[in-house]
Structures are given as structure tokens and as C-alpha cells.
């Protein structure tokens, strides 16, 4: 056997545990979801429904014609766009602040990573208590110091609740953008900036024309990653509001259908529509925006 062939064989051999895991735990289950989406299945009758029987479009038509689902998809989209944008903007501001050394920078940097590192259940619980209408510190300060007329039910009032979960999302995930942007910022060679400085470019001009163009590719990457993850976000919203007060995103809805109503078929159909919507949105993004980033030299 040639060296090349031996290497290829070793490659597949080394990869096989990973491939088997991914195949069994991800690929096959996803294909099964696809089949479940077209079957009339509930958790109680699943043993009777064969793998290949009773295909129907009913789940899909029910999902697509349901006003609640359309509403959930709209909420998901608002939540995702706002959450992604805010987290990247905050991350950019944070990265620009700690870009150059100063006393205590290590501490500031560490503090900024906390929201991302801490367990989601713990931080959502702290937010819940902080925002509590009766004994939360935010409402207490608001009513006694800032002159609010009454406590604001941040997590249970329509409209306010969505803004709150978006703020939470931005708070929890800006460190992710921060890390990537800071790594990129620190890899930019200083001479270009220095040259522009000697030529009399002001700090804002230097940011606009020298630093920012170096960041666009990372920002584009962050936008895609954060968009995907925020679009599928479940934990944050489920833990903060349980999907109430106008914050029901699609993944929370899928969870409720699956566990509370045990309607496997409709849950699968919804999850599938969610995945397809994501792919379509990403397709649009790459078609319209990605090209622009490719054209900018970096």
C-alpha cells in the first residue's frame, strides 16, 4: 500500500469515532425529525405509527396557517436582529476601550467576560430577582430615586418584556463579540495607524478609515454566528419569561408543543420551518452582504 493510501486510511480510521457519533446523534435524528414532521404523531401513539406510514401535510399546513406561529416567527426575527446588533455594538465598544494597555486592564477584561462564562440559569435568575416588581433592586431604585410612578413589570408586561430579553441577550453575548474583535484589533500592525497620525488624521478619522476596515470581516463573521445562535435561542427566553408577555420565540413554542402537548408531529414541523427560515435568511445575507465584505480589502 502506498504511503498516500495508508495516510488516507489512517485519516478515516481516526475520524470514525467522531463520524459515528455525529451520524448517530445528529444526522439520523435530524432525518427522523424530517419524517416526523410529515406524520400525525403524538407521544402516545408513536409506537403505532410506523416509520414509513401515514404521511401527511397536515402538520405543515397547520403550522403555516397558524397566526400564533407567524407571530412567534416575527418575535424571533425582532429578537434576533436586535440582540445580534446590540451584542456586536457593545462588544465593539468594549474592545476599543481595552485595546491599549492601562492599569487594571486585566481586571476590566476579566469582568467583561463574566456574563458569557457564568451559567445561564444563574444569570437569568439574578436578572429575574433584580427586576422583580416587589423586591428587585432596579424597581426599588427606580421608584425611590428616579421618580417612577410604580414598579415596572419588566418580564411580564407586553412590549417591555421583549425589550428586556433583548437587553439580556446583548448583555450575555457581547463578551463573545468582544473577544473576537479584541483579538483582531491587537493583530492589526500599528504602523499604518501611526502613518495616518503623522499625516494629521484625527482619532475618529483613523478609526473610520484605518481600524474599522480591518474589522469588517470579523464583524461579518460575528453577525452570521450570532444571528444563527440567537435565532435558535431557547434557554434565555424560557428561563426569563417562559415565552409569556409577547416573547414567545419559535424554539420556546416547539418546546411547549413537545412537552406540554406531546404533539411530536407539529413540533417537528415547526422546528423544520425554523431551520428552513434560518437557511433562507442566511442565503439572503450571503447573497447581498457577503459580497460587499469580500470586495473590501483587508
Amino acid at each position: 500500500m502506498s504511503l498516500r493510501a495508508r495516510e488516507a486510511r489512517a485519516g478515516w480510521l481516526f475520524l470514525s469515532p467522531t463520524l459515528v457519533t455525529v451520524l448517530v446523534m445528529v444526522v439520523l435524528p435530524v432525518l427522523w425529525t424530517l419524517m416526523l414532521a410529515f406524520q400525525d404523531v403524538r407521544l402516545i401513539n408513536i409506537r403505532q405509527v410506523g416509520l414509513f406510514g401515514n404521511y401527511t401535510l397536515e402538520n405543515l399546513s397547520r403550522v403555516l396557517s397558524s397566526p400564533n406561529f407567524a407571530e412567534a416567527l416575527r418575535t424571533t426575527l425582532i429578537f434576533t436582529v436586535a440582540g445580534t446588533t446590540l451584542s456586536i455594538l457593545l462588544g465593539l465598544a468594549a474592545a476599543l476601550c481595552v485595546r491599549r494597555p492601562f492599569r487594571g486592564r486585566t481586571f476590566v477584561r476579566a469582568a467583561m467576560l463574566l456574563p458569557y462564562v457564568a451559567p445561564v440559569v444563574a444569570v437569568t435568575f439574578v436578572w429575574e430577582v433584580m427586576l422583580h416588581p416587589q423586591f428587585g433592586v432596579v424597581n426599588e431604585i427606580g421608584t425611590s430615586l428616579l421618580g417612577w410612578e410604580r414598579a415596572i413589570p419588566f418580564l411580564s408586561q407586553e412590549g417591555v418584556a421583549l425589550a428586556t430579553v433583548i437587553a439580556f441577550e446583548a448583555w450575555r453575548y457581547f463578551p463573545f463579540a468582544f473577544l473576537f474583535l479584541l483579538a483582531r484589533l491587537q493583530a492589526i500592525p500599528g504602523d499604518l495607524d501611526e502613518a495616518a497620525r503623522v499625516d494629521g488624521a484625527t482619532p475618529l478619522q483613523r478609526f473610520r478609515h484605518i481600524t474599522f476596515p480591518q474589522l469588517t470581516s470579523v464583524i461579518a463573521l460575528l453577525a452570521v454566528l450570532r444571528f444563527i445562535w440567537t435565532f435558535n435561542e431557547f434557554d434565555d427566553i424560557y428561563l426569563l419569561t417562559g415565552g409569556g408577555a409577547g416573547t414567545e420565540v419559535v424554539s420556546v413554542r416547539v418546546f411547549q408543543l413537545l412537552t406540554a402537548r406531546a404533539d411530536v408531529g407539529e413540533a417537528a414541523a415547526q422546528a423544520m420551518v425554523l431551520a428552513v427560515a434560518l437557511v433562507v435568511l442566511l442565503g439572503i445575507y450571503f447573497a447581498f452582504f457577503a459580497r460587499r465584505f469580500e470586495e473590501t480589502p483587508s
Binding site: V22, M25, V26, P29, V30, W32, T33, L36, L43, I46, L225, I228, W229, F231, N232, F234, S251, V254, F255, L258, T259, V264, A267, A268, A271, M272, L274, A275, L278
Partner: peptide
């Protein structure tokens, strides 16, 4: 796989383990 929505994966695994 890394970017795949975990809620989609949750359905079949939930059914299977049930």
C-alpha cells in the same frame, strides 16, 4: 453540526429516549 439548532435535535432525541 456546530451551528445546528439544538431544538431541532431535541425532538427526535426526546422521542427516542421516551
Amino acid at each position: 453540526v456546530y451551528l445546528f439548532p439544538s431544538i431541532v435535535l431535541a425532538i427526535p432525541l426526546f422521542v427516542l429516549l421516551s
